[in-house]
Simulated scan of single mutants.
Amino acid sequence: MSEDRVRVRVGADGVATVTMVRTDKHNALDQAMFEGLATAAGRLAEDTSVRAVVLHGEGRSFCSGLDVASFMGGEGGTDVLLAREPGRLANVAQRVTYDWSLVPAPVIAAIHGNCFGGGLQIALGADIRIAAPDAKLSIMEVKWGLIPDMGITQTLPRLVPIDIAKELTFTGRIISGSDAAAIGLVTRVEDDPLAAAHALAGEIAQRSPDAVRRAKKLYDRTWVSADAAAALVLESDLQTELIGQPNQIAAVVAGMSGETPRFVDPV
């Protein structure tokens, strides 16, 4: 069933497209969708041919959030979402957001229609978010007497000040894609966010995958870190891994000759 909820396609250019497919429910999150997203992230994390990932929802919306009704009739209810496998940092619900950070390649979310609750937290798990101006976004959990608990502590602090985070969380207010861009919740707005996401992914795919992957690793590990010493050492360590390697040399040759570089898959 999870294969029916999430479709993964990897193009010849190394751009992977991950599509949430539950159009009749605005791609609301049921158990199969959770499983499908986690499986997709795990697969792409292991695929060295992937240069960038585009994540989007089919139909009228990106993702309208948790389908509570689908869990009420199942064994264990929503408690199954709080289960944590041995050795995993994130629980079942958190994995559909946190696991995108474990994908070495950049992940770009293309947001349209409704992007509520868990759906917004999935988008926040991406490295870059491109939204339609009229998309509707909300940290909606307070509407149901809950808190956002799908990895938002690892994503939202990197995007907005704490007062904005609190306002959006305390009220569950719905904002437009344009308003979200103005406060930094999304990267930018485009009339066709999916086309823009693919264009950006294609541009990234033309860069050295070794450098792009290490740049993601560098920022993810240090962006809100107060440990300056560790961050500076990591910069040096990652750079040392790149210098003189085939893809770094290919980038230099291409930069000096103007020719298109030919990169190999990362090791």
Results as ranks from 00 to 15, higher is better:
Asp30Ala: 00
Thr23Cys: 13
Phe62Gly: 03
Ala123Asp: 12
Thr48Arg: 05
Phe34Ser: 01
Ala126Gly: 10
Ala135Trp: 02
Val80Leu: 10
Leu137Glu: 09
Val21Trp: 12
Val107Leu: 00
Leu66Thr: 15
Ala132Asn: 09
Met72Ala: 13
Thr48Trp: 03
Asp79Gly: 04
Glu58Gln: 15
Ser101Val: 02
Ile130Asp: 13
Ser61Gln: 01
Val21Arg: 08
Gly57Glu: 10
Thr48Glu: 10
Pro133Val: 07
Ile130Phe: 10
Leu66Arg: 04
Leu82Asn: 15
Leu66Tyr: 04
Val6Glu: 09
His112Val: 01
Arg60Trp: 04
Ala16Glu: 08
Ile130Ala: 12
Ala109Gln: 13
Gly14His: 05
Ser70Asn: 04
Asp47Glu: 11
Glu85Trp: 05
Val18Gln: 13
Ala123Met: 13
Phe62Arg: 08
His112Trp: 04
Val107Glu: 02
Pro106Ser: 05
Val107Cys: 01
Glu58Phe: 06
Val15Ser: 02
Val15Gln: 13
Gly36Met: 06
Leu89His: 14
Ala110Pro: 12
Val50Ile: 06
Thr17Gln: 15
Gly113Arg: 03
Ala52Gln: 08
Leu102Lys: 15
Ala12Cys: 00
Arg95Asp: 06
His26Ser: 09
Leu81Trp: 00
Ala16Thr: 06
Leu37Cys: 11
Ala123Pro: 09
Gln94Thr: 04
Trp100Tyr: 12
Gln31Asp: 07
Phe116Arg: 15
Gly57Thr: 09
Val54His: 15
Glu85Tyr: 08
Gly113Cys: 05
Leu44Cys: 08
Pro133Tyr: 11
Asp134Thr: 02
Arg129Ser: 12
Trp100Phe: 14
Thr17Leu: 10
Arg22Gly: 14
Ala126Glu: 09
Val18Arg: 08
Thr48Ala: 14
Ser64Pro: 01
Thr39Lys: 15
Lys25Ala: 12
Asn27Met: 05
Arg129His: 10
Leu124Lys: 03
Ala132Phe: 08
Tyr98Gly: 06
Leu55Gln: 11
Ser64Cys: 09
His26Phe: 05
Gly57Lys: 11
Pro106Gln: 03
Ala40Phe: 08
